[in-house]
Structure formats: structure tokens, C-alpha cells
Nucleic acid binder design. Structure first.
Lengths: 216, 216
DNA sequence: TGTACATCAGTGAACGCGCGTTCACTGATGTAC
DNA sequence: TGTACATCAGTGAACGCGCGTTCACTGATGTAC
């Protein structure tokens, strides 16, 4: 399992990275297997040695997106072991940051680009691990009385739905400039989360800066 | 402005309807100008008499989506003139229903498929009218103390973000079966909105049925 | 009412393009003896 | 260390396809006199 073997070395991973780069540069519209191969410096038919077809390549990129988010969430949870509020905010921020930093990788990951998910066990595993981490977090927040109790899966729908929609609205430029000119994205996120939290917070726990002052 | 004139009659609208049908049957992936023309029973070059290019056709379909949602929102607001809570719930339901009933028309409308929106004044007008209706509704809800006060545009981001994400999660099958098997979509929506409302409601105002009983 | 003309919605052939996928191949790498 | 062979990652030509768009055209409709 060295980093390089013979021939190209690790074409499979190189193709995934190339795919992510194509997404970043040309978006989902511009995504094609041929471009990915070109980006990786390889013939357009080379990817077929590693991926059955285009769908399989997309599934691998999607899996990578879930993996990134999952690892960051786990990381945040470990970083603030006894602080569910902080875990809640930073987990939301992880998700939102991914959406802002890699918009099209985010879209391909969380917008059901993979048609027959079942056929990709690695993807199925990453999605269920991620969903589970979110669910556990919600339960911890309910126990700490941070958000309304009730069916945790339903609370998860509320929170995750909001966070996803939040990214979407900003990505698509649907948020009024009154808001985007006045608040940073992190500030907007936390102020919005306040509508869901039972006790609104007034300071960003990251640096104790006051929220909603109305100046970026 | 008769319904039919000479030749085809009203090809422009017929093409928009054909486009919506193609979206419903084959999704965004399967959408092409040539298919739309075929569906409308017309040569593949006929649409160019009415739309400058593919983008213009998409912009028209998107405008139609906004128009539908806008008209239904206005309708709901007029139907319950002094009941902001009811307006709030039904407006959310209008949006969500559109997403469930016409998933791909919804996506093309609210997922920034139009590249240079500025160039389509009818679209710009419909979006701003819709945004404004939502904003006014949020303000009415804040005044009635239904949701937390503060910058209305930010509250709108929270609510609209949530509702959009809600549709997305369900459309993409990302909601746990525990939840979807147990609650109807309307029930899920209202129970989720309860996390945002200051005073949770316990009955669906539409028919006074109890919420969250745990059986569809 | 009838004729000549202008308008313009819709036709159909043609273009060039990039795509996904296949397939016989080449040639570098690894393995057996 | 050297040779023969097997493996298999990557090549490059070829395929058929549907796409967006253009353009000279046709023929139905409307208008002027």
C-alpha cells in the first residue's frame, strides 16, 4: 500500500481528486469522464480500469464528500467533549463551510447525483455513519435541553434541513443583500440557529465576539 | 390576446408546458430543447422563433415555477386574512407541495439553473415579488410573536432555508424511514416548524387532527 | 369579393461538438525458476 | 543474475448518439387596394 506503485501509481485516487478539481473549476454541468481523465493526465479510456462507468466515478466522489464531512464532525465532537452546544454549532459550521468552500463537490455529494446508491457499499456506509453522527448529536442536544424534545429523527430533519437549505440559499444568491452585507456567514448561521435553539446565544463561542451587532 | 391565433396558435406557452412535462417525465438530466419541441409536436428548430436559446427556455420555465408559488401564497394569505399562524403554515405547505408534486420543475425553479438571471426581466420580477411576499409574512409572524424577533431578512433565511432543505432531504430520500413511515409529509412539516415557532402547535389547523400521534 | 403582396411561424437538412463506452493493442512491471 | 512468462495499467482508434444552433426555405395567414 505504498503511495506509488508501478505505472501511474494510484490512478484511482488521482482520478477522484481530478474529478473534484473539475467540479471546482467547471461545475457539475462541465463534469465529464473525459475531462477528468485529461485532468489526471491520462487517456479518456483509462478510468474504465478503475470505475465501471461514469456513475461509479460520481459515487466515489460523493463518498469522498461524505468522508470529509464525517471526519470533520467526529473531530469537532472530540474537540469539545462535554459541550453539546459547541458541538452543535461547529458541526453546522463544518457542513456549511464545505458548501461554501467546495460548492459543486458539496452539490454532487448531497444532492442525490448517484442513481443507484445501493450498488456502492462504500457510499452507503459513509452516509449511514454520517447520518448516525448527526442523530447522536441531536440526542445529546435534546438531553442538554438545547432544542425541543420529541422524536430525534424529526428534530434532525429540522436541523439538517435548515442547514442544507441555508447553504443552498446563499449558494444560489437568494439571500437579501441587506443580510449578506451586514453579517458574516458564520454570524448568519449562528443567528439563524438561534431560531431553533431554546435559549439563544449572544456570543460566538469561538472568539466570544458579540453576535448581530450589524457590522461585519 | 385570444387563446389561438394562426399557425400553431400559442407555441410559446405550449413549449413551456411541454418543457414542464419533460421535466416531470425525464428529469433535469433528460431535458433538452429537442425533446421539448418533439413533445410540443413541432420541429426541433421551431422553439428558436420564441426563445433565443436553451437558457431562455429554462428561464421561462423557472419564471412559471415562481409564478405558481407566488399565486398560491397570495391566495393563502387572502384566505386567512387575520391568522398569521395559518398563513405561515399554509405558505410553507404551498412551497413544500410544489416540491413534492413537481420535483424537477421545483429544482429548475429554485436551484439556480438560470445562469444570467438579470437578462430575464420577467423572472427577476417574479422572484422579487415572491421574496417580498415571504418577507412580509415573516414580519407579520414576528409582530404576532409567533417567531423570534430580530432582522426579518435573517428570520426569513432561517424559515425559507429550512423549508427548502426539508423538501430537498425528502426528495433525495435522506430522511430516516423511522420518520417517513410514521408521519405524513404535512405532519412532518408542521412538527418540524414547531422547532422554529415560539409556541408549538398541537393540532393541524386544517382539520384539527392531533399532531405527532405517531401513526399516519 | 378578388387579387397581389408582405409577414412570419414552422420546416428540414446540415454543421460541428463532446460525450460514454468498447476493444484490440502495447509495454512496463512483477514473478517463477 | 538471467531468462521466460503472466499480469494488468494505460493507449488510441473507432462507434454511435443526441445535442444546440444556423439557415435557406415553404406555405399559411393577414392586409391593402
Amino acid at each position: 500500500m505504498g503511495t506509488k506503485s508501478y505505472h501511474h501509481g494510484d490512478l484511482k485516487n488521482a482520478l477522484i481528486q481530478a474529478g473534484i478539481k473539475i467540479l471546482a473549476e467547471e461545475g457539475i454541468e462541465g463534469f465529464s469522464l473525459r475531462k477528468v481523465a485529461r485532468e489526471a493526465g491520462v487517456t479518456h479510456s483509462a478510468p474504465y480500469a478503475h470505475f465501471a462507468d461514469k456513475q461509479a466515478m460520481i459515487a466515489a466522489i460523493s463518498t469522498d464528500g461524505y468522508r470529509k464531512v464525517y471526519e470533520r464532525i467526529i473531530n469537532v465532537v472530540e474537540q469539545f467533549p462535554d459541550d453539546p452546544l459547541r458541538q452543535f454549532i461547529e458541526t453546522a459550521w463544518v457542513y456549511v463551510s464545505f458548501g461554501f468552500d467546495e460548492p459543486d463537490h458539496f452539490k454532487i455529494t448531497f444532492s442525490g447525483s448517484v442513481e443507484r446508491e445501493r450498488e456502492y457499499p462504500a457510499l452507503v456506509e459513509m452516509t449511514s455513519k454520517t447520518f448516525d453522527a448527526l442523530r447522536q448529536l441531536i440526542i445529546r442536544c435534546q438531553q442538554a435541553d438545547l432544542i425541543d424534545r420529541g422524536e430525534p429523527d424529526l428534530a434532525a430533519v429540522t436541523v439538517w434541513g435548515f442547514v442544507h437549505g441555508f447553504v443552498h440559499l446563499i449558494q444560489e444568491g437568494m439571500v437579501s443583500h441587506i443580510v449578506t452585507n451586514r453579517y458574516s456567514r458564520r454570524e448568519m448561521l449562528i443567528l439563524s440557529l438561534n431560531h431553533i435553539l431554546k435559549t439563544p446565544i449572544t456570543k460566538d463561542p469561538q472568539d466570544d465576539s458579540p453576535l448581530g451587532s450589524g457590522t461585519k
